[in-house]
Simulated assay, not measured.
Amino acid sequence: MLDFDFEPSRPSWSKQLAVFDLETTGLDLRQSRIVTACVAVLDSNGLTTALDEWLLNPGVDIPAAASAVHGVTNEIAAAQGVAPGPAISEIVEKLRELNKSMPLVAFNAPFDFTILKSEAIRHGITPLDPAPVIDPLVLDRAMMKYRSGKRTLAALCQDYGVELKDAHNSTADAVAAGLLAQRQATKFPDLDMEISALHSAQVIWSDEQSLDFAQWLKKQNRPDYQAELGWPIKD
């Protein structure tokens, strides 16, 4: 098959992307454990050229609510999952190596990268310091400040015309996030900048978005909410 670059005018950062997603035992960034993970590479046409997947036995109970989202039960994890320590080491090293030559894409990056850091520390592994990173959620909020409806991965994929066949499957979500980033690169000329500059911009944009959300909640009679800053990792 001939390899044509159908989007030659896209920013160079979008021509090869490493995509990353986790499914976990919960939403707590410090206590949740990894259940499944995917790291893949997309070429300039959005085709998957490399793929690594992991199913872990997290060593703790997978709540029924989490299993209902990603489909992995305690029984499946016990029967088919690998030990978390070696798997987390593999995930970190795979991302570290890929990040030397391409951006890492993660939708709502602080969720995945903060949990990965917490897990690495838990197992005595040197944490990943991801950079550059592309976060399609931060990009959408920056380029489309006012949007009706939700900004879930599924909702944004529908808006940008990206197919998401199996939401909350780590591989499907990772690949969809990469395709979404490539669509955004085509749609918004303001994203045509050097990748280091775009990474730095997202650090600022993410904090601004978190503070704006906190202000909005205060207007909704939720004055106790405190914005947690930090991107792509919340320390």
Rank of each mutant, 00 (worst) to 15 (best):
V203D: 04
V138Y: 07
E75P: 01
P127N: 09
L229N: 05
N45V: 04
A167H: 09
D159K: 12
L47W: 11
W205T: 06
D173M: 07
D166A: 13
V41H: 08
P8R: 13
L139I: 11
A37Q: 07
A106D: 07
A68F: 10
V60E: 07
E97I: 13
V72T: 06
L2A: 14
Q226R: 15
R183W: 01
S12C: 11
I76P: 03
S170F: 05
F4Q: 09
Q184R: 00
G26K: 04
Q209R: 05
L211V: 11
Q16M: 13
Q158V: 14
L191M: 03
D5H: 09
F20G: 02
Q158W: 13
T171H: 11
A79K: 11
V105A: 10
D52A: 11
F20T: 03
A68N: 14
D207A: 07
D129A: 14
V92P: 00
R10H: 05
I34C: 12
D43C: 08
F113K: 03
K234G: 02
T49A: 04
E75A: 15
V138M: 10
K145L: 06
L137C: 04
E97W: 08
G81W: 08
W231Y: 08
S67H: 04
L116E: 07
A172S: 15
D21A: 09
T24K: 10
W231H: 05
T171R: 13
T25G: 00
L2S: 07
A131P: 01
A177M: 03
D190R: 10
E208A: 12
E90N: 09
F113R: 01
S9V: 09
Q226S: 12
H123I: 08
V69D: 08
E53D: 13
F6M: 10
E93M: 12
D159W: 10
V72L: 05
G59R: 07
D212W: 07
M1Y: 13
V82L: 14
A120T: 09
A167K: 00
A201I: 08
D61P: 02
A174D: 04
W216R: 08
E228F: 10
G81L: 10
P86D: 09
T48F: 09
L95A: 13
W205D: 05
V92F: 02
D166I: 12
A185D: 03
N45G: 15
F111Y: 15
L47H: 14
F188Y: 04
W54T: 06
A64G: 12
L98E: 05
D173H: 03
S89G: 13
L29P: 02
P84A: 09
A37R: 05
